[in-house]
């Protein structure tokens, strides 16, 4: 859903399409500068094209579209998610991703069967599954179900110290 930003203050510029465009533009100019400093980008291939031509062309296109976001007729608009965003909007996904990385690292040591309920039960409880024993039961059932499905179809999965 797209919204106009007439009720937002000047300090909310970053929530608008123009703000998104500026953030992208800064990141993309940095990326472009990085690409221009790489030796491989100047290597000429047999067909006469330089190795960096397509990556640089892609970044140049992104820069053009970011400039478009900054200046086109929708630049004052925003999405309802951006209007309602706060620190939680940006921090929770990072925390969730870090938790999943930690889970994956634990899985490589303890295996899927042990590490999965250790992750799922507290996360389910934290998200609102009540009472605690329901969260524990749900985590155990889903672990076994996912494990059985992955085993039946023969895909690789970390075993850990357990024999299965």
């Amino acid at each position: 859903m797209t919204l106009r930003t007439s009720e937002l203050g000047w300090y909310d510029w970053w929530r608008t399409n123009r703000g998104v465009g500026i953030v992208f533009l800064v990141a993309l100019l940095t990326l472009l500068a990085y690409l221009f400093t790489r030796d491989w980008a100047y290597i000429k291939l047999r067909d006469g094209i330089r190795l960096g031509f397509f990556p640089i062309a892609a970044v140049a296109l992104m820069i053009l579209t970011a400039v478009g976001l900054i200046f086109d007729r929708h630049h004052r608009e925003t999405t309802s998610e951006m209007v309602n965003s706060d620190w939680r909007t940006w921090c929770y996904p990072v925390i969730a991703t870090a938790t999943l990385l930690a889970y994956f690292w634990t899985m490589t040591i303890l295996g899927f069967v042990i590490s999965t309920p250790i992750l799922l039960a507290p996360v389910m409880y934290l998200l609102g599954a009540r009472p605690l024993r329901a969260a524990i039961a749900a985590s155990l059932i889903t672990t076994v179900a996912v494990y059985v499905v992955f085993r039946v179809i023969g895909t690789s999965i970390h075993q850990g110290p357990l024999p299965f």
Binding site: I43, L45, L51, A58, M62, L64, T65, L69, D72
Partner: peptide, 29 residues
């Protein structure tokens, strides 16, 4: 929003250039 669609397409273009070039298989990006 056209520019958001184009930005998305250009991002896909960029991600596809990571790895190696499709003709010479030389590592890039």
């Amino acid at each position: 929003h056209l520019f958001k669609g184009l930005l998305s397409a250009a991002l896909g273009f960029y991600l596809a250039t990571i790895g190696s070039d499709p003709i010479g298989a030389v590592s890039r990006n």
